[in-house]
């Protein structure tokens, strides 16, 4: 269903322009990292791409509709939202609303929980899991849908280094299965580790969209240069 093509997308709230004239094409296969300062519009851009918000102007278009409509995409949020159910039911729920038959749901859920290392605690209430475990469960839940595109909104912002590492490994594994990754982060070293290409947002506009190597060596935009310098000083 890729590429995903955004044309002149803008978003306003209460008289403020939050996203302004973003035109970008997301091609299959790569891992795209969206970078930018807090408030640059990274999360909003992701939500618009995923369809959680509609743009106030411009268009969001998928190249083709998959047979199941446009649902072959999933998202993992900064703060994982756990349904008040067991770990396994959190995964089967997503499959259920997408019409997967019951027996198949159990199979897929168990397989994906195993992949993220949560198989042993599948029957515990999701609410008792640690932050890292919850984020892994969110990944399993998204993974189970076998998405063409996976959006991740700062998935490791609240996690310690060990949990961050296991999330990154899972992301790589999902990507290895052929899923397009579009992820925001404000962790530059993480961006360097994961990115194939970078979309740099600045004050609601897309300042640049370049391959990762080029972005980190010689960014094209003055804003990105300033951002990289600023971040490195820390």
């Amino acid at each position: 269903m890729l590429p995903l093509i955004l044309t002149d997308v803008s978003l306003w709230r209460d008289g403020n322009t939050l996203i302004e004239g973003v035109s970008v094409t997301f091609s299959p296969g790569t891992k795209t990292i969206v970078l930018g300062h807090n408030g640059a519009g990274k999360s909003l851009l992701l939500r618009i791409c995923h369809g959680l918000m509609g743009p106030d102007s411009g268009s969001v278009a998928w190249a083709e509709k998959s047979p199941e409509g446009h649902r072959r995409q999933a998202m993992v949020f900064q703060k994982p939202i756990m349904l008040r159910r067991s770990v396994r039911s959190n995964v089967t729920y997503g499959l259920k609303v997408n019409g997967v038959p019951k027996l198949r749901r159990q199979e897929i859920a168990d397989m994906n929980l195993k992949r993220v290392g949560l198989a042993d605690i599948a029957s515990r209430p999701a609410a008792v899991l640690s932050g890292g475990e919850q984020q892994r469960l969110a990944l399993a839940r998204a993974w189970a849908l076998a998405p063409d595109v996976l959006f991740l909104d700062e998935p490791t912002a609240n996690l310690d280094p060990a949990a961050t590492q296991s999330v990154e490994e899972i992301v790589e594994e999902i990507h290895g299965g052929g899923t397009k990754i579009i992820m925001t982060t404000h962790d530059l070293s993480q961006a360097r580790r994961l990115a194939d290409e970078v979309v740099f947002m600045h004050q609601g506009r897309m300042a640049e969209h370049t391959p990762a190597d080029q972005f980190f060596d010689s960014p094209a935009s003055a804003e990105a240069r300033a951002y990289l310098n600023g971040e490195l000083r820390w």
Binding site: R47, L52, A74, F77, I81, L83, G94, V97
Partner: peptide, 16 residues
């Protein structure tokens, strides 16, 4: 409010 984005992301319809 807590669930909205997640459920919408998973593709749940309002009746679900």
């Amino acid at each position: 409010l807590e669930y909205q984005e997640q459920l919408c992301s998973l593709g749940a319809r309002p009746n679900q």
